[in-house]
Design a protein around this nucleic acid. Structure first.
Length: 1111
RNA sequence: GGGCUUGUAGCUCAGGUGGUUAGAGCGCUACACUGAUAAUGUAGAGGUCCGUGGUUCGAGUCCACGCAGGCCCA
């Protein structure tokens, strides 16, 4: 049996073949099944949504997932990977609406909810085929035959179960949150909707800086010292309509404030106002500086002002003020000054007006300080804000009752009589001496994408999961998770947990999992349904009570509108209707550990064995998405983490670092890339180029480079092996040659190989695939190909098939096979191909695929650090000699007599001596001479040992370093001889020992030398006749080899050589090196003739030679 | 505005715990090699280590403040 030999190789075609092989032989299935009974390694697939097409970044994300699943499989774990599809949510709805040319308003009129949801269900799998195709082609092994699908009834039933668990624990509640709300459309808006183009618009609004009158008491007394008139806090708002809802003010505790005596520009009354010191220039005209307060006359344009006092924000906290627009009285601690971390002095006054009901920050701070908000009681007896859902003031706001806070009534704004409600409020405040400044202000404000009307931030009822109740536990659990990179876990995710707010579950939509909560009309009774069976039972009760006609079907769909039609009966006999909300789709995906197995209704054992996950990986944008929802549900309901290790990978950008987008046309087509370069080079490039968590600038040239440099080199090395192994019939059938009987370079590459196994295993274990890939790559190109193979080429093609040759074959075979195993998680196709090409002949392993075998185990006994150090020296010396040859224009083919190496310690000499032969043949030199001190010709260099001396002498280093730099050869000799030397510093003596300095030899007078890393080499460039002849012989061999090749001769063909007499030197060279030439060129004879017919004229530097070779 | 993150050669990236000549690959230039050959080797040029301060005898590395890019969130 022969190793396959390749002329050209198409990596993409190769991958196709391997893919077919995997399919035909069910290799993936076997890789899982064959580990039955072994410990499991659990991986959770974060479900993609198949309503869009996959991009190149998915190749990246999935390569990361695949690598560790394959790696753990090789280590003997059973790694089940259930695929999944995320199917619910707004993007699907929007896509359907776009296709049908409808809007949300048309649902229920132009199209029924049932029909709409059917369209969504169809749309969601629109590109499933493309996804499956990509999965397959890129070699991502995941079970696509039995995926979990979030819209399936079993999946949704598990969600209901989990929701009920939360409900029963008191962790599911209905409350308020401040959300973008469109009164014109009568609906809340998601941030996604708000971010649609055109939603934020520059508008001119009436802004008011209002005066909040300070209550004079003991605490506020300092503000009144030196004041005139009433004292006010002034605060700025661009939404004056929120002022009747003001319930507190906020200041920054480290901001400096001043009290300023001045006059109100509308009423001309003397006043004292408090604002941030940095903002004074924004509110008072500099030109008025120096005008005395007493000179002010009502109506003056320039209003004088005078600083009356300065205060820290912290001194203002806790002071009381009078309600600005007292329509609704409030209990204390309303109308006091609070501290707010969001307060700045960028604009406004450095004092912020808060209205709990109309701002998210406002709400948060108010709740935190237990400040009551401004509410009224509506007809149903519930608390309601002072603006109703139509965007109009309620009756209680008497002066403005019924007025729309923005122009929702569609009044003609160009009418001279038109006054916006904001303006009306401003007028009222002006009249009351409560408006310090009113002006138009242009700013960017969000608008409803459907009605084009400005939105309000408005309190809306929502269902929440009380994640804050378990915050500390969630933080604690997070600390046990191994995050890659660490900073995402500690920073982005950790901070997010520290500042956790309750999880708003409600979505007012159609295509998603309905909230399984039914409520009576008076909202006093409710039931949370946790399973289909429970629903069935409740429906039976409802039938008995006469609210329902018939029991629900066995295949009852849990989606809208079907669940909406179900009326249940409360314990007291009231009808109950379902709360109309759907739940956040993030709950769908965060619940996948349970719902994918239809837990707890089925598969309880499977679940127990596969929770929590050992490993997950998704984009860093999932930090507050999937990573969080997994963590929250697991923490709240199972008091556990959902995953132990997580990689948060970065973005894939285009080669210029810009985000890829289909619109800009810089998106890379994954299918095209895979088809052109194959999956292996693509994956290897992505993994080796940057850590997964760093952004990747995807450059197709990088893929080409990986293909050429890594896969090309590896394949070349294999080809080389295959060529000669086939000639010699090496199939690794004989016993392994003991290491002791192998050559130094064999043992060296085996040592390096085992070091590599250790390094790669550690890298994979630490979820550092980039380190693994780079290590494999470096070993393959530098150590194996560029050093081991290059140095040992002759062993493969010269001489008979003996033990030494076997050793070489075995060594190279082992390296190649091990690379195949180590690299298989990253380049699954190519490495399997390589593995099967090798193992297919040797049959040494039983596995039919590299993915069914075992990960290599390092034999630490074969790691020889000494030997590796020696070889480092050989490479160093060779490189230095090459450098010298280059400098003197002496080509490697010209042998030289000797190199000199100054030796300052015996260890270096031993190391070099051990690899002397390698060096000599590599650089074509006859001998190495070691020069030690006794020669007396070395010029030495001395340098302080900084780390050592620095610790001891610290500040004296500068002086010491100066002193040492001035050492002459004598001084160096002294310290070497006596082991120490005393130097004089300005403030005393310092004794330097031999260890305190580094002594190197960097020069041999009269020689051309090269130095690196403390090693110096000098080259003897004297050319004797003998050397010159040998050089000629080598040149001739080279030319004859070329002729052989040109003639198309096979490696083993024998030839005869005839050379025409001419040059004496050449003749002498041929005679002296006759045997050498014949051996190298497989020549049976080498003859000098007076005249050679049909000869080829060879040019060798300045020589010309007529030669003929014949078979 | 906040949190996190990145910034080192033309490009892509390495640079434990601070230590005096800052590295690799690609690209470029030159040379060499020629039975691994549509390969390979060697050398050279190329650096304001984002900036400014600070700590230190000594900073690419530590600290502070900025600048620029990115992500997430307001």
């Amino acid at each position: 049996m022969k190793y396959r030999e390749y002329k050209g190789i198409s990596y993409a075609a190769l991958a196709d073949d391997i893919l077919q092989y995997w399919k035909d032989n069910k290799i993936f299935e076997k890789s899982v099944d064959s580990r039955e009974g072994n410990p499991s390694f659990t991986f959770f697939e974060g479900p993609p949504s198949a309503n869009g097409t996959p991009g190149i970044h998915h190749v990246m994300a999935r390569a990361v997932k695949d690598i560790f699943c394959r790696y753990k499989t090789l280590q003997g774990f059973q790694v089940k990977r259930k695929g999944g599809w995320d199917t619910h949510g707004l993007p699907v709805e929007l896509q359907v609406e776009k296709e049908l040319g409808i809007t949300k308003e048309d649902i229920g009129t132009k199209i029924s909810v049932e029909e709409y949801n059917r369209k969504c269900r169809e749309a969601v799998m629109k590109f499933k085929d493309q996804w499956d195709d990509l999965t397959e082609k890129m070699g991502y092994w995941v079970d696509l035959d039995n995926p979990y699908i979030t819209f399936e009834r079993d999946y949704m039933e598990s969600l209901w179960y989990l929701l009920k668990q939360l409900y029963d624990k008191g962790l599911l509640y209905k409350g308020y949150t401040i959300q973008p709300y469109s009164p014109a459309a009568g609906t809340g808006l998601s941030s996604h909707e708000l971010n649609q183009p055109g939603c934020y618009r520059d508008v001119k609004d009436t802004s008011i800086t209002a005066q909040f009158k300070v209550v004079r008491n003991e605490r506020s007394e300092p503000l009144f010292a030196n004041a005139q008139g009433d004292v006010f806090f002034i605060a700025w708002t661009t939404t004056p309509w929120t002022l009747p809802a003001n319930n507190s003010l906020a200041v920054g505790k480290n901001i400096n404030y001043v009290a300023v005596k001045s006059f109100n520009q509308y009423t001309f009354e003397p006043i004292t106002v408090v604002l941030a010191k940095d903002r004074v220039s924004g509110y008072f005209n500099k030109k008025a500086e120096g005008i005395a307060l007493s000179d002010y006359k009502p109506g003056d344009k320039l209003i004088p002002f005078e600083i009356a006092g300065e205060f820290r924000g912290s001194e203002l906290v806790g002071l009381d003020y009078e309600q600005l627009m007292p329509y609704i009285p409030l209990e204390k601690p309303a109308f006091t000054v609070l501290e707010g971390d969001f307060v700045t002095t960028e604009d406004g006054t450095g004092i912020v007006h808060l209205a709990q009901t109309f701002g998210a920050d406002d709400y948060r701070v108010s709740v935190k300080h237990h400040v009551p908000g401004v509410f009224v009681t509506d007809e149903e007896g519930n608390q309601a804000p002072i603006v109703n859902k139509q965007g109009r003031f309620v009756q209680e706001i008497t002066d403005f009752a019924g007025m729309p806070v923005k122009n929702y009534a569609g009044e003609d704004e160009s009418d001279a009589e038109y006054r916006s409600t904001d303006v009306k409020i401003a007028i009222k405040l002006k009249e009351e001496n409560r408006a310090f400044k009113v002006e138009k202000y242009e700013h960017s404000y969000p608008h409803c994408w459907r009605t084009d009307m400005p939105i309000l931030y408005y309190p809306l009822e929502s269902w929440f999961i009380k994640t804050t109740a378990m915050k500390d536990r969630l933080v604690e659990l997070n600390k046990t998770i191994n995050w890659k990179p660490k900073s995402t876990g500690e920073g982005r995710f950790g901070n997010w947990l520290e500042n956790l707010v309750d999880w708003n579950l409600s979505r007012s939509r159609y295509w998603g999992t309905p909230l399984p909560i039914w409520r009576s009309e008076d909202k006093k009774e409710e039931k949370c349904i946790g399973s289909v069976a429970e629903l069935k039972a409740e429906v039976e009760k409802a039938i008995a009570a006469g609210f329902e006609q018939k029991p629900i079907d066995a295949d009852f769909d849990l989606h809208r509108p079907f669940v909406d039609d179900v009326i249940l009966v409360s314990d007291s006999g009231q009808p109950m209707r379902r709360e109309s909300d759907l739940i956040d789709v993030w709950f769908d995906s965060g619940a996948m550990p349970y719902a994918q197995w239809h837990y707890p209704f089925e598969n309880q054992d499977v679940f127990k064995n596969n929770f929590p996950a050992d490993f997950i990986a998704e984009g860093v944008d999932q930090t507050r998405g999937w990573f969080f929802t997994l963590h929250a549900i697991a923490g709240l309901l199972f008091d556990n983490v959902a995953y132990k290790n997580v990689i948060a990978n970065g973005l894939v950008l285009d080669k210029n670092g810009n985000k890829m987008s289909k619109r800009l046309g810089n998106a890379v087509d994954p299918f095209k890339t895979l088809a052109e370069y194959g999956p292996d080079a693509t994956r290897w490039y992505m993994i080796s180029n940057a850590n997964p968590w760093d952004n990747l600038k995807f450059n197709i040239e990088g893929v080409q480079e990986v293909q050429r440099r890594f896969f090309g080199t590896l394949q070349n090395t294999y080809n080389f092996f295959a060529l000669y192994a086939n000639l010699d019939g090496f199939t690794f059938s004989e016993e392994e040659i003991p290491m002791a009987e192998r050559t130094e370079s064999d043992r060296w590459i085996i040592s390096k190989l085992n070091s590599l196994v250790v390094e790669v295993e550690r890298a994979y274990d630490e979820y550092e695939p980039t380190r693994a890939a780079r290590a494999i790559m470096d070993f393959t190109t530098d150590d194996l190909s560029n050093w081991y193979v290059r140095l040992n080429r002759k062993r493969f093609w010269r001489g008979e098939y003996n033990a030494d040759k076997q050793a070489a074959y075995q060594t190279l075979y082992t390296c190649l096979l091990t690379i195949a195993k180590l690299g298989s998680p990253i380049a699954p196709f190519y490495m399997d191909h390589l593995y099967r090409d090798l193992n297919g002949v040797s049959g040494k392993e039983e596995a039919d695929s590299v993915h069914l075998g075992q990960f290599p185990v390092a034999d630490e006994g074969r790691i020889d650090a000494q030997l590796e150090a020696k070889m480092d020296k050989a490479q160093l010396v060779s490189s230095l000699v090459h450098s010298l040859r280059k400098k003197d224009m002496l080509k490697v083919r010209q042998p030289l007599s000797r190199i000199l190496i100054p030796i300052l310690n015996p260890e270096t000499r031993e190391q070099i001596e051990a690899v002397e032969d390698l060096i000599l043949s590599e650089v074509n030199i006859k001998a190495i001479e070691y020069i030690d001190d006794t020669s007396g010709i070395l010029v030495k260099k001395i340098k302080p040992n900084f780390p050592r001396l620095g610790k001891q002498y610290g500040p004296k280093m500068k002086e010491i370093s100066k002193a040492v730099a001035q050492f002459g050869q004598e001084d160096i000799a002294e310290i070497e001889r006596q082991g120490q030397k005393t130097i004089e510093l300005s403030d005393g003596q310092v004794i330097l020992t031999r260890e305190d300095v580094d002594i190197t030899s960097e020069d041999i007078p009269g020689w051309s030398v090269a130095s690196e890393n403390g090693l110096t080499v000098a080259l003897d460039v004297t050319l004797t006749d003998e050397l010159r002849q040998e050089g000629i012989a080598r040149d001739l061999v080279n030319r004859i080899q070329n002729l052989r090749k040109d003639m198309g001769l096979e490696v083993q063909d024998k030839i005869k050589i005839a050379v025409e007499r001419g040059d004496e030197l050449v003749e002498a060279a041929l005679e002296a090196n006759h045997d050498y030439i014949c051996a190298e060129t497989q020549a049976l004879s080498l003859e000098l003739q007076e005249e050679v017919a049909d000869a080829t004229e060879l040019e060798m530097d300045e020589l010309k030679l007529r030669v003929k070779i014949s078979v």
